[in-house]
Design a binder for these strands. Structure first.
Lengths: 340, 340
DNA sequence: ATTTTTAACAAAACCGGTTTAATGTAGGAC
DNA sequence: GTCCTACATTAAACCGGTTTTGTTAAAAAT
């Protein structure tokens, strides 16, 4: 490996001089500058990233921390990553994807502080230990989702307004005359599931409708694909419960499962029942048949906002604790219709 | 920041002793070990990742290097990333996503060597300067795709057998009676485009059919989305050229554009013309209408193989130059049919 | 002409770890 | 009792950069 000392020797100057030539933080004569640049060029010298980070206390890397069980990434996470990338790209930051086996985390090699300037945390759970750890070590973080309890007031976060989003979609279905609305919700321990359930009830109360019990089902804890859960649950619930005329799905994969189930049962969407889903992107819903009506969550914007917030925190020092709530847009496409 | 010196002072020992307690590379008495661990615990000490990397010359990070214009990531890249993540997860490696603005790359801050043990390079072009650079600096790399020219013999690579894949899909169309097959190929400078074009011609020759000139179009250099390119090109070509009865698309997004164009023109797939596409995942093609017939490229496996190959290189030192070619599977779903 | 300032560079200290060489101390062999 | 060895620990050197301090010679000020 070519070091700064090699360059210095080749150019007949000291290490500090070479450093100054590159950083331009102190004046170096034109003649010496030329000599150094030539030597560096010839030796194919590249400054060592880690040595520099060590002294600068800055890596220009931000981490994306997700719970390890979540693999592979779903549409929402991919869109979010895209958004993060776009902002990081503009600001000269790189992204470190941080998923490690819990077993490996115990190894000495890896308990080290993460090599990042800050982190974006996904899928917070109740009293998430990751958040407490970062707070204690003063590592800047932005949480995507709703941090629970007293942590909420201490960290920046970006999230959909899930309560409003769920309420808005249920409101649509209620005004269309649906009274038994099946809700295939996400896993129970996630704060997002709580929020959406709340929205579901809220819309019912507003409309003066008593929600039918047993129609909210949580996806079992992150095992199995969403598409299968949507498929199997729909088959089962439509058989067992009469009168279900609409289904609200947690994501577009579930909706695909629902579509498959409809086809198998010989049912027509939206003639026989309506479907509406929270969707991570607007890439695929329009291509479905019929085009899927949904709440556009805009994971991409969330990723962008989270990255902006984090970079702001990292560069400008500690800004205040901000919480950004993004509205979701209801996009009617063709999978919802009035009853009778 | 709590350093190793702080811990040493608190425990009343030297820095080296603390280091040994953590690394267990030299024997430390039980009593001292306890004292050190207690002090570290109380101070909430975490070893500094950069300092450690500096001396160990090892980061346990591998880089994913993609050409900056490619944003956001397409389905293929997302799947590939998933595969990489899975393997890295098992082996205790992190992934650094490396996309930087060309303008920023010139800044002194960023010309530094990348902070990784090795890199996976995407979308190689002719005499890719990235490859030459890594070779010169002896940074282990694995190329996803086909490195061009003399570089091919010097680096590991993982790729679809694109020639075979293209040939196989064109062969299907030819046996179905199609004679004017429009091929919406990817950008011209990419080696993958060459390979697939070769496959296109190969299948024609095998079948004794003279390919019609002007039916292979390359996507303009990575600007604009694939979906739009598919849409606009289809509209234009179907108007201008009579007799086109089948379209081969570079990816599923293009296929969606083609579907949209068909709808706008009031044409029926596969009744009026057939569509077949290279597809990164098997997530969405089945949900399209009609379900999209395609060559399943299995980006996930490519990602896994690339990561394995790279980690092998990084840990075991220089292994031989390997090239892994993965077969693609033709999945017939419903967007292709015989002519007349 | 002498002192003061400035420019341009060298030398050394530092960042926070790891590793090697040196040191001291206890136990065993003679 | 002396010498050697083994063991636990310390001090110092090192990784590859940046930054501070020191030094020298020329330019400017008095």
């Amino acid at each position: 490996m070519v070091t700064i000392a090699d360059v210095a020797k080749a150019a007949g100057v000291s290490k500090g001089t070479v450093s100054s030539v590159f950083s331009k933080k102190r004046p170096i004569s034109k003649e010496v500058t030329q000599r150094v640049l030539k030597a560096a060029e010839e030796l194919n010298y590249r400054p060592n990233y880690w040595a520099r980070s060590l002294v600068n206390r800055k890596t220009n890397i931000i981490g994306l921390n997700m719970r390890s069980e979540k693999m592979p990434l779903d549409a929402f996470q991919h869109e979010l990553l895209d958004g993060m990338m776009e902002v990081c790209y503009e600001h000269g930051y790189r992204i470190l994807i941080n998923i490690l086996q819990p077993s490996l985390l115990k190894q000495v090699e890896l308990i080290a502080s993460d090599p990042v300037d800050g982190e974006i945390l996904l899928d917070p759970i109740h009293d998430d230990p990751r958040i407490e750890d970062r707070l204690k070590r003063h590592v800047p973080i932005v949480v995507v989702g709703r941090p629970s309890g007293e942590l909420a007031g201490q960290v920046c976060s970006v999230d959909n307004d899930n309560i409003a989003a769920a309420a808005k979609s249920v409101r649509l279905l209620l005004t269309q005359g649906h009274r038994r609305i099946l809700f295939l919700n996400s896993a129970k321990d996630r704060t997002v599931a709580e929020d959406r359930e709340l929205g579901y009830y809220l819309a019912h109360r507003e409309a003066g409708v008593d929600p039918v019990a047993g129609l909210i089902l949580n996806k079992p804890d992150d095992d199995g694909t969403s598409i299968r859960f949507g498929y199997e649950t729909t088959l089962q619930m439509l058989r067992e419960h009469a009168g279900i005329s609409a289904i609200l799905a947690d994501n577009e994969s579930m909706a695909m499962g629902i579509y498959q189930a409809a086809e198998e049962l010989g049912l027509h969407i939206p003639g026989d029942f309506s479907v509406i889903a929270f969707s991570g992107g607007e890439h695929f819903p329009p291509a479905m048949h019929p085009p899927l009506t949904g709440m556009r969550l805009d994971a991409r914007t969330i990723g962008m906002e989270a990255a902006r917030l984090l970079i702001e925190q990292v560069t400008a020092g500690a800004a205040g604790v901000k919480r950004i709530l993004l509205p979701s847009e209801l996009v009617e496409r063709g999978s919802c219709a009035c009853t009778h």
